[in-house]
Amino acid sequence: MLQAPPYLKPGDKVAITAPASKLEATAVEIAVNILKERWGLQVVVGETIGASYHDFAGSDAQRASELQRFLEDDSVNLILAARGGYGVSKILDSLSFEHFSPKWICGFSDLTALLLHINSLGFQAIHGVMAKTMAFDEPSNESLKNLLFGGKVDYVFTHNSEYFIEGKAEGEAIGGNLCLLANSVGSKSDISFDGKILFLEDISEYLYSIDRMLVQLGRAEKLAKLAGLVVGDFSDCKENDEPFGKNFQEIILEHISKYSYPVAFGFEFGHENRNFAIRMGETLSLDVNKFESKLKSI
């Protein structure tokens, strides 16, 4: 299991930054209120919040500089991404982790690239709601708070009776957005998936593109030796004019059909309003039967 940064306690400091796409400054107001008034934390809002450079929250240099400052700041206990979009991968290789002060980093979507890089350094990171999306769903917020303050993972969810593979597994959690995971192959952030429980989600992808990205992971030998697979939301999947012929569940099952690990679909994880948190790098147990699936801290 990867090292967990220090868990939060009341009075700790959260830095909100936008390392990818731009957003209005008002979009983080609800999150700031929750973090301060309900969770008892201090909040620092970065200058990238409300900044604009084309579609980004400032230039690559501006976004990297702010993130670098928060990574090295000993007084910051949590870096919370403001939103995803696109842009984290563009700045990753310009960051230095020589003086990284271990702390929690949280986000999803495009932030998968950063979470994976933090995992490659030997630390856990959290796939969960971001400042903008904290306005959407209180149970998702509470799941993040639970994990940040040292609570256990304990999720039970039902699945479509057509799509599952029964079994039990234990392994480190890894994953997030399928597109970013496929794009990380061969990069400095690339790590082994062997013996791990892989989490997948994505949004607005063509079905053939989902198939192509899984081909990439398969060719890179990322799927062969998993301990288990947990599939979250694949929102707004798209068809070509000529139908692809399979839904996303069937595509995924086809790519892992020659392996024998458990597979759970239906975990509320991804781009829908309900987005439960997972500590990537924590060792979890997965138990899949014909009626439900269970994810728990060990």
Rank of each mutant, 00 (worst) to 15 (best):
P6K: 02
L8T: 01
K9I: 11
I16Q: 01
A20K: 03
E24G: 14
N33E: 15
I34E: 12
L35T: 04
R38P: 00
R38M: 11
L41S: 10
L41P: 09
G46L: 02
E47K: 14
A51Y: 10
F56D: 10
D60W: 09
A61D: 14
A61N: 04
A61S: 13
Q62G: 02
F70D: 11
V76A: 10
N77S: 15
G85P: 07
Y86H: 14
D93V: 02
F97W: 10
E98I: 05
H99D: 14
F100L: 10
G107P: 06
D110C: 04
L111E: 13
I118E: 09
G122T: 01
G122N: 09
A131K: 02
F136H: 12
E138G: 00
P139L: 05
N141Y: 10
E142H: 12
L144E: 11
L147G: 08
V156H: 13
F157D: 06
Y163W: 15
G171F: 04
G175S: 11
N177V: 04
K196E: 09
I197D: 05
L198E: 01
D202S: 13
I203Q: 14
S204T: 14
Y206H: 15
S209W: 12
L214Y: 09
V215M: 11
L223R: 02
A224R: 10
L226P: 09
G228C: 07
S235N: 13
D241A: 14
F244Y: 15
N247I: 06
E250A: 08
E250S: 07
E250D: 11
I251H: 05
H255I: 08
Y259A: 05
Y259M: 03
Y261C: 04
G266N: 07
N275Y: 06
N275P: 11
A277D: 08
G281S: 07
K296D: 11
S297A: 05
